[in-house]
Design a protein around this nucleic acid. Structure first.
Lengths: 229, 229, 229, 229
DNA sequence: GATGAATGAGATTTCATTCAT
DNA sequence: TATGAATGAAATCTCATTCAT
């Protein structure tokens, strides 16, 4: 799915010089990448290093950590918005679009962390007007998508969009030990189970094999072994 | 459900003096409480302060942070085991016992963090023989419960206990902003939806009212406001 | 050589109860042993544990760490005094007695640390009247021994007892990496070389084989490997 | 003798900025100075304070205490190497060069601590490639010097360079109470005695006056008084 | 404007010493 | 009296943020 970084000149400051804009984008890309792979608590140094700039530059572009998080979030929300649009264009039904989004949008995975799963980042997002606005937009789009699916009869009517999004979030957002290993397995299976729970009519077979507790433990161990030695 | 701290004389060291045991318990209780409310990365100072002891005391009782986490986990696992037993005694079917456990065991909420949702704590748990053992016991009991439910025909047969536990875990384990506020609402509704997804036969009505996105936001805000100021 | 712990009732306090005296002695023995094997900075806990008593008991017997060090030193000085007496009785000349003392008195090895090689312990010794006195005694005995050797013509006359003792001390006191391994080798060879330097007439052959730099490094490594891992 | 801090660009990292290099040097100088006066276990805080920087700066320049020790050691070894070279240039014989080194190189005094008299620092030195290399170089140079002296007939042939260096080390390395005060006296006299012991042919008169035990005590007291108050 | 050096508060852990049982 | 539990200051190290080059 798309991963463009759009110049955020909505905020109205003076246009950035070309190199400054390039740096800004590199930082956001680096932060997104690290947030995804290592969680939200990577150090500012690490982000700057990954972006190929100095910390000073990072702080020149973003007032503080909260500001950076907000900017990354705003970007992430925009990406999700684009993914929603794309999904609706590409898929035949609202349900299919919803499923596509839930199962295939990497952007959504990061977004749920930034918007739902961390108190700190939620605060950061809502302290910055820029991310606040696009957050609202994204939520509306998601809500509309759910409601469309309800109207076409594919999502049960006794739930709200909030229920659906919340549920999808916690499943997507989980970064438990072994998540990386499990991605193609447990998370996908879980998602399917959850989507089944959301459906008006139960679906058919699940992907993959049943996961035993033994299996679960093995994956944990693998995850933990990659922690640092 | 039960929340006793049992004198841990299983380990075989000499019996602790009365005051020491009291402190040890206070520390575990404090740690459990802070782990629940603020996550696993509260400072040792904060735990000691909450327990009403000095850091030195904390370190006398537990060799290091890992040791404390392991001890809290062992306790937590024992509590879950007790809850499983109780649920099986009290409820008429394995399914009902499973539901009771998932929806009403506060112990299970903390446990999933310690056993599933943090690489670090998973390591800590498995580095300490005491917690390792009880972890295995607990997992077996949970697996048996799921399998019983499958045999009585209430949980779909195409999933493993690992799938079920994983899914319950991520829903329970979620500590998103406002989780505390939402406890009686979103999490419970989500759990119901998830349980529905696990069922062989879809159940009936959900508890509570549909949750809108608007509602979700409001709750987030409330949650964030309790963060620290 | 002798290693008795004599009841120190010279200080004049009320006689200790039998068990108290036993404890006191055990503590001193334990401290001496640990000081020898692990250096002067072992923890009070470790000393108490080795002595088989609680820290409380240790502090009841000795006002603080300085007090303990002073007591151990006093004991150690007394032991050296006894060794001097014995050496003079047993050996045919003052020189032989001096050599015997330097090469065979374990007590002297510890003593030089307490009396010469640690600022802190020197202070501790001289802050306590008890150890001060016996320190003076010991020094006199050593000085007399050196002077006797000078008078019998075996130690050069252009040095003072201070020179001789100082030199022996630094060689004996050295606890460099690999010292334990080297004890029978380097330290003994060094002592012989030093004794040669002190003699009026050079002596004959050295014990052992010449030590190369390569050899030195190997021993260091062995020493370091026993440090903790 | 020389005491320059050479820009360590041998390691190959990007050249440090002027201020950073200045700070790096100040830190090394401060550490050397404190190591000399207070031993190897001064706190990082104290070193930073003495260098006039914050702890953070110290840790930015050196990964940890071991890294700092290794860097100081490398510097110290280089200084000794320079002193060896200088001594060989200036003095007419290998023996004279050896004596000059032993008696006049302040660098050698610190070096023996770092290379011989502390297990911990020995480890630190050998864990860092930079210090490891120069350590080897220095040892070779010292060994060669001793062997040259043996070949010219001034050092007895029944000892190895290891014996000679070890012996010199313990005498030089001694930081007993009053060492600073005694420098020009006891240590120098001791060194002469030791050097005499190493010689093929005994030398003539010793410098200074014989040191009595009384004198020794006085100096100890002076040393201890400078400990901290 | 970009860089990365410097800062210092805070986290974990140890240990001499005091105090309750 | 003996015990060992409790204390808290100090040491090492990390990281968000500021500032000199």
């Amino acid at each position: 799915m798309r991963e463009k970084v759009i110049p955020p000149n909505t905020a109205g400051g003076p246009a950035l010089r070309a190199d400054a804009r390039r740096n800004r984008n590199q930082i956001i890309v680096a932060a997104k990448s690290l947030f995804r792979t290592s969680g939200l608590d990577v150090s500012m140094e690490a982000i700057a290093r990954t972006a190929g700039v100095g910390v000073g530059t990072l702080y020149r572009r973003f007032p503080d950590r909260a500001g950076l998080v907000a900017a990354v979030a705003a970007q992430s929300f925009r990406d999700v918005l684009a993914d929603v649009t794309e999904a609706k264009e590409v898929e035949p039904s609202a349900w299919d679009a919803f499923v596509r989004l839930a199962t295939q949008s990497e952007n959504l995975r990061l977004t749920v962390h930034l918007a739902f799963l961390s108190l700190q980042s939620w605060r950061d997002v809502h302290a910055a007007p820029e991310s606040e606005g696009v957050h609202r937009e994204m939520m509306s789009a998601l809500e509309a998508l759910v409601q469309d699916a309800q109207e076409e009869g594919s999502i049960r009517r006794d739930i709200g969009a909030g229920d659906a999004l919340y549920l999808i979030s916690v499943v997507l957002g989980n970064r438990s030990p072994g998540t990386d290993t499990m991605r193609g397995m447990s998370t996908e299976r879980s998602l399917r189970l959850v989507l089944d729970g959301l459906r008006a009519e139960p679906s058919g077979a699940l992907p993959g094999e049943p996961v035993t507790v033994q299996e679960l433990n093995t994956r944990m161990k693998q995850g933990a072994d990659t922690l640092e030695g």
